[in-house]
């Protein structure tokens, strides 16, 4: 059995795949589109249109940034309400043109800040759940690092969710979980085990559609991601819209 805490460490490793790398290597072209159209643009979410296997797709990624300045502005990859609203807007735009949507997630969660509360963090996530839940176009998400709570779910509520081998998805970080339930953050490893946050156990629980192997160089890993996404997208694009939406409803209804 793999040690869950090892998965957590790998999911957080600083030298793992970055959103920037994924955008650059999965899409032959990428045009970034900014803004939530309600007064703000959150740099922790990067979105736009990219070319994937010869067709235009809407691409949305969380973004941690590289330089310290960037990382601070992006709150280390924790989106603000404007980020979720940007994502929701881009998904709606994509649906208008039947353009598939690919989302890439690596976030500890939605940013817990004062301004984020005032700007309606809860409402913004609910908006994503609604707009992504309803959009009439295929939507696939991939977690490639941390998938933290509602902030990750907001971007993972489409037709399929895949996880990289070295990634995690949980209702709360193991540290947070241990400190809330046992008032002892040092019991994180035990919490990680109990939470079942590894791709392996999430696949068993049918929370995700599959696990993407991470072998070889980063570019080899990207080729593997591309292979999986191309295959899945082709399946989803064959479905009539009504079956696509029913399938999406049932995907969450079973829980």
């Amino acid at each position: 059995m793999t040690d869950a805490m090892e998965t957590v460490r790998a999911a957080r490793a600083s030298d793992k795949l970055s959103a920037h790398y994924l955008r650059a290597h999965l899409f032959s072209d990428f045009v970034e589109l900014h803004g939530d159209r309600q007064g703000a643009d959150d740099p922790a979410i990067v979105g736009g249109i990219g070319l994937f296997a010869g067709q235009p797709v809407t691409v949305i990624t969380t973004s941690r940034g590289h330089k310290l300045e960037e990382r601070l502005a992006k709150h280390f990859g924790q989106p603000e309400p404007a980020g979720y609203r940007k994502a929701a807007r881009l998904v709606k735009d994509a649906a208008r043109f039947k353009r598939p949507v690919l989302l890439f997630i690596d976030t500890a969660g939605a940013f817990p800040g004062k301004e984020a509360e005032y700007a309606g963090q809860g409402q913004a996530i609910a908006q994503c759940l609604t707009d992504i839940g309803q959009a009439q176009t295929p939507i696939i998400s991939v977690i490639f690092g941390e998938g933290g709570s509602g902030g990750a779910l907001a971007l993972a509520c489409g037709d399929e969710l895949w996880m990289m081998e070295n990634s995690m998805y949980s209702v709360l970080s193991p540290e947070g979980f241990a400190s809330i339930l046992w008032k002892d953050a040092s019991r994180a490893a035990e919490a990680a085990e109990l939470l079942g946050l590894t791709p392996e156990s999430l696949l068993k629980g049918q929370v995700i559609e599959g696990v993407i192997k991470q072998e070889g160089s980063k570019s080899a890993q990207c080729r593997e991601i591309a292979r999986v996404l191309e295959e899945e997208l082709a399946k989803l694009q064959k479905l009539p819209v009504s079956s696509l939406l029913n399938r999406r409803y049932e995907r969450f209804r079973k829980f």
């Binding site: 759940l129 779910l153 949980s170 209702v171 939470l195 999406r248 969450f252 829980f255």
Partner: peptide, 16 residues
């Protein structure tokens, strides 16, 4: 918290 990820899934289920 005691129901982990299956609790999280309820958000999308109910909203849908």
């Amino acid at each position: 918290m005691q129901e982990g990820i299956y609790s999280l899934m309820q958000m999308a289920k109910v909203v849908n």
